[in-house]
Design a protein around this nucleic acid. Structure first.
Length: 554
RNA sequence: GCGCCUGUAGCUCAGCUGGAUAGAGCAACGGACUUCUAAUCCGUAGGUCGCAGGUUCGAAUCCUGCCAGGCGUACCA
């Protein structure tokens, strides 16, 4: 619709110039927007103000010239007006909105889909939590955002893969092994001083018990190194499968689980380090190997191999991102916790050194989640290993509520997650507010079917009966959906869809309370049914992009 | 110290990347169920958009400088 208006304005400007109403053929990018105030019509453009300098005419005069030359063969425009400093407002005929419904029904699950991605191969990497402990709420937010962004990009024509990077190598894994082994020894009566820098949670004890069941006392006869290594592998494998289960409960399926250890085993880390040494991008100093990140805009150089011979995470991250490009991804999106933001210049530097443009790499930083109950913070201490896990949250409030709430904020804003509020089935809790629309319409559809009106094909006469302001309002809102999805993809902001759905839901509930869908008049009923079933489709589509279900009954 | 994020109604947050009189929900107050699901709706009230400058026809939005909070600033992850 907006595009139609744009074209009209463009053609009108051109005609105005041809006829001499406008002195210059130099037209700016035309912007058409939907005004906030209803009195300003359905669409408005600021073109006359933008043009004023070039045309050397007052904006209102330009507006007159354009309006005079508007060609509207289908008569979709009801009236135009010049307002304020020179806005041109367009007010559309009610019936010009009706065809939107047909489009929604015909495109169905693909309404709002586009090909702006042009099949570009893009990878979204998210969660990627170390397999050293259970997922917590913060990971949940990253999971919800990452999964939704991937869904949206897919819907917009990108060729998307979702990936989880497993940090299954390095120091924190050996710390994990050490932690478990100490608890294991404890089970055999050894008196231990459990160090602060080890993992504290009860799950460490549980893993030790598991090992004891399986291996009895055999580990006590191995060398400490062997025993720790066994515990590390056992623990990491177990925790990782727990993580996989948690994410499955959360409705998230990764295309690939990528092992960091695999990068070492295949020699990719060594290879890239050697290549960079040859290019003098990596150099030796003080017994350590340094990456010249400073040459690529970072504030200082960074160590890749420490003087004790151990690699840092940065080393494998270089190889990892190289591998991403080697696998043919044209665009890489990493989703990290905001506390890692200092890491961005480093990885960007690596990507540039690898010969790829920075514009191919995006990092989305997810701000932290404050877990509350009845408005009071829930005590959490990672150090002491006491925290509410993602699984606890899903079990308590459900996957739908959790995912929706994670997507009710821009990811750059910290999020308060109130467990009690997430369970409430009232207006406080937007999940049910939106889902309820779907359930209500489903119920209407069932009733309609009982009455024998299940025909929902396009019926011009029936649809032309939709003349109530609330009906036109609903269609207008729905007509914006494709653009909302596009913007969501472009800026990678799923919350735009969340807000759109809440807005649509609100308009629907208002309509529902004011008008009956199933009336005594067959034609009107058909038209209204056609309308609400379109609403149902959009709610379903939008929720799907968020990873939230659309129930038939509630 | 430096870098990033945040600051909008009593509370929690949107604000279409510069548009017209800044919007929702909650909380407060007053109303609506013999009617398709009241997990709903309607109405009232609520503002120095952190502060100060600047850019222009026009700023919550862009620039600069402050103030406050969070995070980061390792041969940790």
């Amino acid at each position: 619709m907006k595009q139609k208006i744009k074209n009209m304005i463009y053609n009108a400007s051109k005609d105005a110039y041809d006829k001499g109403d406008l002195p210059s053929p130099d037209f700016p990018e035309i912007e058409v927007e939907e005004p906030k105030a209803e009195s300003h019509g359905d669409f408005s453009t600021n073109i006359s103000m933008v043009m004023a300098a070039v045309q050397k005419m007052p904006p209102r005069k330009i507006a007159e010239a354009i309006i005079k030359n508007i060609d509207d063969p289908d008569g979709i425009i009801d009236r135009t007006e010049i307002a304020g400093p020179g806005f041109i407002n367009f007010c559309l005929n009610r019936y010009s909105w009706h065809p939107v419904l047909r489009e929604i029904h015909e495109r169905d699950t693909l309404y709002g889909a586009s090909d702006i991605g042009k099949g570009k191969k893009v990878q979204v990497e998210f969660v990627s939590a170390n397999p050293t402990g259970p997922l917590h709420v913060g990971h949940g937010r990253g999971a919800a955002v990452g999964d939704s962004i991937a869904n949206i990009l897919l819907f917009c024509g990108y060729n998307v893969e979702k990936e989880y990077y497993i940090n299954d190598s390095g120091r924190q894994i050996s710390t994990l092994g050490r932690s478990v082994f100490m608890r294991y020894k404890e089970l055999f009566g050894t008196d231990i001083q459990f160090p602060d820098d080890c993992y504290q949670g009860d799950y460490i004890r549980d893993l030790a018990i598991e090992i004891k069941k399986k291996k009895e006392d055999k580990l006590l006869f191995l060398s400490e190194e062997e025993a720790i290594s066994y515990c590390a592998r056992f623990a990491a494998d177990n925790i990782l499968s727990e993580i996989k289960e948690d994410l499955e409960c959360f409705g998230i399926v990764f295309d690939r689980w990528y092992s960091e250890q695999g990068l070492y085993d295949s020699g990719k880390v060594d290879r890239v380090i050697n290549d960079f040494r040859k290019q003098n991008i990596i150099f030796e100093d003080d017994g350590a190997l340094w990456f010249r990140t400073k040459d690529f805009g970072d504030e200082k150089n960074r160590v890749v191999v420490r003087n004790n011979g151990l690699t840092t995470y940065f080393a494998s991250d270089i190889a990892y991102h190289q591998d991403k490009f080697d696998r043919g991804f044209e665009r890489i999106i990493d989703i990290w916790g905001a506390d890692h933001h200092g890491y961005i210049p480093r990885v960007s530097a690596a990507i540039e050194a690898l010969g790829y443009g920075r514009d191919k790499f995006d990092v989305i930083l997810i701000q932290l989640v404050n877990l509350l109950r009845e408005g009071e913070p829930v005590a959490m201490s990672t150090r002491a290993g006491e925290f509410v896990t993602l699984r606890d949250v899903i079990n308590e409030v459900g996957s739908d509520a959790a995912r929706f709430i994670f997507l009710t904020r821009h990811y750059e804003s910290a999020l308060d997650f109130d467990l009690e509020l997430a369970k409430k089935k009232t207006n406080d809790n937007p999940v049910y507010y939106v889902q309820y629309v779907h359930a209500r319409i489903s119920s209407i559809a069932r009733k309609a079917q009982e009455r024998g009106t299940s025909d929902i094909a396009w019926n011009a006469a029936a649809v032309s009966r939709l003349t109530e302001p609330e009906e036109i309002q609903l269609i207008k809102i729905m007509s914006r959906y494709p653009e909302i999805v596009r913007c969501s993809a472009e800026y990678m902001e799923p919350h735009r869809i969340t807000y759109f759905l809440m807005n649509l839901a609100s308009a629907f509930h208002a309509y529902y309370n004011k008008h009956r869908v199933l009336t005594d008049e067959a034609e009107l009923t058909l038209g209204r049914l056609y309308l609400v079933l379109a609403v149902k489709k959009i709610i379903r589509n939008g929720l799907a992009l968020l990873g939230v279900s659309a129930p038939e009954k509630m």
